[in-house]
Amino acid sequence: MTRTGQCWMVAFGLTLMTAACGSSATSDSGEQVTPIKRAEIPQNEFTPLELEATVDALVAAINESPLDEAQMVVLLKNLDDFFAPIATGANRAMGELGVIGNVIGPNVTTVDGPSSQELQNQQIAQAVADGAHGIGVSPFDTTNAAAVDDAAANGVPVVTLDSDLPDSKRSLYVGTLNVPAGATAAKTLLAMLPPPPGTVVIHGILGATWPDGYDRTQGALAAIEEAGYKPVVSEAIFGDENEASDIERMRGNLVAASPPAVGILGLFNISYRCVPAADGAAMPGLPIVTFDFDPRTVDLMRQNRIKATHTQRQYYEGYLVPYILYGMKSIGLEATRAILAPLIEEDESKINIGIDVVPAEKIDAYNDFLVSIGSIQ
């Protein structure tokens, strides 16, 4: 069945997707079809040009193939905060593609109900039962691997995003590669430090049960050690109820540092907590570099307390996945992977969207970029 120029709109971000309904063309069978046309976005100094060019190349290849109807779903951990730009990007891409699709979240549970992982497994199984041609999923952990494998066994390709299941039968991963991301963040901070010796406190994760956090921490550790500083990891404690304990742990590591602390590197979206930790240790002048674009982080950057942050291009994580799923259906996995080659690192299954380095003095410019893609958090 050919793709018929239908523009199927999901509820989130409708105004971003109207450009998907363009002029029609005629297929060999005489049916009206709509070539895929991406919405135009003004260029900004933060626009990832290689990533944009790669998507354009994929669209060009897809447009040369029969444009079939497709059905897909993108499953996220939630639709708020960090995941809101991912939902925006996925919805825009599905609108441009004219596919039947949806972005699903959040996974809300009760004490006596199924876990978020169990609900996500049910969502994956339901997508297969509903006839999806592809699934994008941000898995919680390895307990979601069996559901991914079942989908693949039933002929439904799965692309992971944000977090990965490398030992599952997922076809590709889209997101930040965390070892180089951690190293990049470390180098941003290192440029602000006095010469060694000195201790750098890392708000990170040492337990390998969360591979993404662990890998990011390892990348930062290696870069800091190579530069001649002593890294000390203050294990991050997630959850609003644990904020005071997390800050106190970090404060203790700063006070106990030997040689004295010269900087703090936060690797997660909660790393705005580095600032009250430095204040509690009576070290308000320490250079602090963080990750992500939480509003509290932005406020502290405007106060020049956080010198820079690193964002994970969540919008592009969401935006790429529907195009990849459609490409796999239209031109096949190998052809899609060949077009994505400029973004592939580590192995042939990981698509690296990179990270943005945002200095405090570039907050307004970066906000302009986020506005231009409809991705304000």
Rank of each mutant, 00 (worst) to 15 (best):
R3D: 05
G5S: 09
W8E: 11
F12P: 04
F12T: 02
T18W: 15
A25V: 11
G30N: 11
Q32Y: 03
V33K: 00
T34D: 03
R38F: 03
E45H: 12
P48Q: 04
L49D: 15
L49Q: 15
E50F: 01
E64V: 03
P66E: 09
L67N: 01
K77M: 11
N78K: 08
D80C: 02
D81Q: 13
P85V: 09
T88D: 10
A90W: 07
N91H: 14
M94R: 02
I104P: 03
N107F: 14
P114G: 02
A127S: 15
A129I: 12
G131M: 14
T142R: 12
G155Y: 09
V156N: 03
L161H: 04
D162A: 13
L165M: 07
P166Q: 06
R170M: 08
S171W: 02
V174H: 01
G175D: 04
P180G: 06
P194F: 13
G198V: 12
E241R: 08
A244Q: 10
I247R: 12
N253F: 14
N253K: 15
A256N: 15
P259A: 02
P259R: 03
N269H: 13
A281C: 03
P284F: 09
I288W: 00
F293C: 03
F293E: 06
R296I: 04
R296C: 00
R305F: 08
L320K: 05
V321A: 11
P322S: 08
Y326C: 05
I331F: 02
G332K: 04
A338S: 13
S349P: 01
K350D: 05
A365F: 01
I373G: 02
S375Q: 00
